[in-house]
């Protein structure tokens, strides 16, 4: 950690309750925009997007009585920076429904450069031609490198490039919050 910083190396920007409220609001917004669950598919991007998509689907089931189908997308085969990634793992894409003609809501934890979403759009179009693709994100931290924006945002968080936003969910991280970590390194 950078000793020359007066800030704490780690600060919380969302707690468990705020995450829950955001997901609940986003679920309502998805229903409002799409007028119900008809032809809707929630697509989680591995790893935390998958968990968030499951929670959104559960919320939608509680509000609406029926749940949209869930799918999982792994975008590692579509990255534009394969050479730069060390020991990348691929997880299975699981798409139990035909994507053609569906309103797809991509779900991920953090929106940053937009490159992950670019890869996800490529991965999705290899599976078929959806009617529409929307994007739901828990934290938008800015610094886009591509013309991509989210349709549903849990929280907008201004960040600097030497910070990292970490979404921690009980299923994967033994914690339930969103934190910003100051990285002790120079930014190119």
């Amino acid at each position: 950690m950078a000793p020359n910083s007066n800030e704490r190396p780690e600060r919380q920007i969302m707690d468990a309750q705020e995450i829950q409220r955001s997901l609940s609001r986003i679920a309502h917004e998805i229903l409002e925009r799409n007028r119900g669950v008809g032809r809707l598919v929630l697509v989680g991007i591995h790893t935390r997007g998958v968990i968030l998509s499951q929670r959104l689907a559960e919320n939608i089931r509680r509000f609406e009585g029926s749940q949209p189908p869930l799918a999982e997308l792994d975008i590692n085969l579509y990255r534009d920076d394969l050479q730069a990634r060390e020991n990348p793992r691929v997880r299975p894409t699981k798409f139990p429904v035909d994507v053609r003609g569906k309103r797809v809501v991509l779900v991920d934890d953090v929106l940053f450069t937009g490159r992950t979403i670019r890869a996800a759009l490529d991965a999705l179009s290899d599976l078929g031609r959806p009617r529409q693709v929307q994007l739901a994100i828990l934290v938008d931290r800015g610094h886009r490198e591509l013309p991509i924006r989210a349709d549903y945002v849990g929280k907008n968080v201004p960040t600097s490039l030497d910070e990292e936003v970490k979404v921690r969910l009980t299923e994967t991280d033994q914690a339930e919050d969103v934190i910003i970590v100051k990285l002790g390194r120079e930014v190119k």
């Binding site: 920076d81 394969l82 050479q83 730069a84 060390e86 020991n87 990348p88 940053f112 490159r115 190119k188």
Partner: peptide
């Protein structure tokens, strides 16, 4: 496929920072 992927990934310099 898994082996080709593994060998071709991570060979270059870091060219970007991605979440």
């Amino acid at each position: 496929m898994a082996l080709l992927y593994r060998l071709c990934a991570g060979q270059g310099n870091r060219i970007g920072d991605d979440p």
